[in-house]
Design a protein around this nucleic acid. Structure first.
Lengths: 359, 359
DNA sequence: TTGTATGCGTTATCAA
DNA sequence: TTGATAACGCATACAA
């Protein structure tokens, strides 16, 4: 059996209270006794029982991280960022992967982190009002990435801004027929990011006087394969896009794959821009909107530390900047295109697109 | 304040012992009282305190996962596999990321999972004898991926076999000048996998009568960038390889990038084969040795469940098969090569390589 | 089937 | 500065 605080107290010839104080480095312990206690603990290779400690103190030394995927690049990067700063502060990470819908439901039905964590970090998970309330009712600090929960700490990027930059980049290159591969729009959980990005995409096009064409929006669900399918769909249009904005690099990769299989090249045939600056983006020479992924995790963890230390009274909201990284998959629109002989003109092209805009 | 078991007991007009039994679905509770208890708990929105429960029972409902990286594809896949089966059994995952060396040391100095987990899963982490003993001394079941710890459960692939298959694939294509980009050989922690693979590589070459040339082995450290550097090094040899085996797909990606920048193509100029079947491997049409990554995580978790249920007396050792996936980056060796005019011949080529074999 | 009583290993309050 | 002791919230052996 492992040694308990009582054993240490006996050996050091002090009370358990003193042992507890000495071991935790609290003041009001004489150096002499502290050393005696430390030695005794060492000799017995004593370690506190975290459960007993938690039970008595109410603190758990643990932060719950709730996320929709553990195995996707983005989330694993964020977790790494979180881990690096929490670990430095001796906080453990309890992982709640709510990818599966039933797991998600079960989670909110039973609230496993209840009394089990000192704080929560929620990554990009769309929550219903009641679900958010359940989390808030745990009465621990909560830091949220991407989405919003009233009263909680927040970190996010400016998705509208990032998207606008991406689409404007294409417009500035002379493209006017610009497709978008969007992600997880159909997910029943209702991720908000794709909605925001879709809106920004449409807004920028409108601002540039480019008519809206729903055919140019293809759903991709954030995976390589879905991105590939979406691209295939776009390229099979009567009047296919000359440039495509994919809402994630992964989908852009899929798009490039489809192009490759069709014998097309970026940017000669179609320009492609992604989002994230995934580790493979440089490899594939993909132009993209970079966001600091691990750094967002670090920020979330730092917010938790602030909340736990009580140094900040108000939950902060941090928006981290995105950055256009121009690589080889985007290029100037060709003046004359095979299937679309008319040269690009400013302003709408009503005759050509009346079918789609009439929808 | 949250309701306690006493509140529930009062409301249901039974003892706390009965509440405990009823809530955990133990037998020896009449249906009537069980329902009364359940209703009372529901009305008070009662949830057991995991710490109190752990303290009293000795069980924690938590499994510790110890790994060297959380943000690499391989490990995030394994964790996803582990999560899927543990979550289905209501076990939580406590993450111990020992990537940083100081974190590693600190971990073994303080043993944070002590009394905090019901079991441990160790992913590919090389441990010293004393470190292994520290883990074993926790007296919980341990399942290990990749490396070995006496008395523990094991899951691994046959690295020698996988490597042999890869190298033989290249030999069968007619290659005789075959380079290897190895991973993490220099890491002070001493990962064993690269050593095994390096040995297998040399063995297969020897069996094929191909002389050993240390210049053809370049260290890569498992990252894209390092793989790229290693490839650059190999291609700058006076007599560069016609085929390269990279110990991980990531490094193979880097190798392909280097080739691309040098204007070389696979397999026309150099054949490249990787290891893992990374999600991006298909995208880049990379020939590789596939291993079931998430599945290994599931197996580890299943072993833990077996150990915890006590159904198996002996720790099992599972070796999962690898599989050659032939894609577009490997091809037949060209009969005549620019820098190496002599056609490939079976058997050693003492004159040509005496310099290197003499080392 | 149910209840009683004790133990689990700390922390924190209060008094000395 | 130190000690005694009451929580903390539950599980479980034992008794009924």
């Amino acid at each position: 059996m492992a040694a308990s605080i009582i054993d240490v107290a006996r050996r050091a010839e002090v009370s358990t209270a003193t042992v507890s104080r000495a071991l935790r480095g609290l003041p009001n312990v004489s150096e002499a006794t502290r050393e005696r206690v430390l030695r005794a603990a060492e000799e017995l290779s004593y370690a506190v029982s975290p459960h007993a400690s938690s039970l008595a103190s109410g603190r758990t030394g643990t932060v719950g991280v709730i996320l929709p995927f553990v195995n996707r690049w983005f989330y694993s990067q964020v977790v790494a960022g979180i881990d690096s700063v929490l670990r430095a502060n001796d906080l453990d990470i309890l992982l709640y992967n709510l990818g599966d819908e039933r797991v998600h439901e079960r989670f909110f039905a039973r609230m496993p982190p209840r009394r089990r964590v000192d704080a929560l970090i929620v990554l990009n998970l769309p929550l219903s009002a009641t679900e958010s309330e359940s989390l808030v009712s745990l009465e621990v600090p909560i830091a949220v990435l991407g989405t919003r929960i009233p009263g909680c700490w927040h970190v996010s990027i400016d998705n509208a801004e990032g998207t606008s930059t991406a689409v404007r980049h294409l417009i500035n290159l002379g493209h006017r027929r610009i497709g978008m591969i969007s992600g997880a729009l159909g997910d029943p959980r209702g991720f908000t990011t794709p909605i925001v990005r879709q809106h920004a995409y449409r807004t920028v096009l409108a601002q540039a006087g480019i008519p809206y064409d729903p055919d140019l929006e293809a759903p991709g669900n954030l995976t390589i394969d879905e991105g590939a399918s979406a691209m295939a769909q776009l390229l099979s249009l009567p009047d296919p896009p000359t440039a495509v904005f994919a809402e994630s690099d992964q989908m852009a990769f899929g798009a490039l794959r489809t192009m490759g299989r069709m014998g097309l090249r970026a940017p000669d045939d179609v320009s492609v821009i992604g989002f994230d600056n995934h580790e493979t983006a440089e490899l594939l020479d993909l132009t993209t909107i970079a966001q600091p992924v691990a750094y967002q995790g670090e920020l979330l963890a730092q917010q938790i530390l602030d909340a736990l230390s009580g140094s900040s009274e108000e939950p902060a909201q941090v928006v981290v900047p995105t950055r256009l990284v121009v690589r080889g998959t985007t290029g100037a629109a060709r003046v004359a295109r095979p299937r679309h002989p008319s040269s690009p003109r400013p302003g709408p092209e009503p005759d050509q697109h009346s079918r789609t805009t009439a929808r």
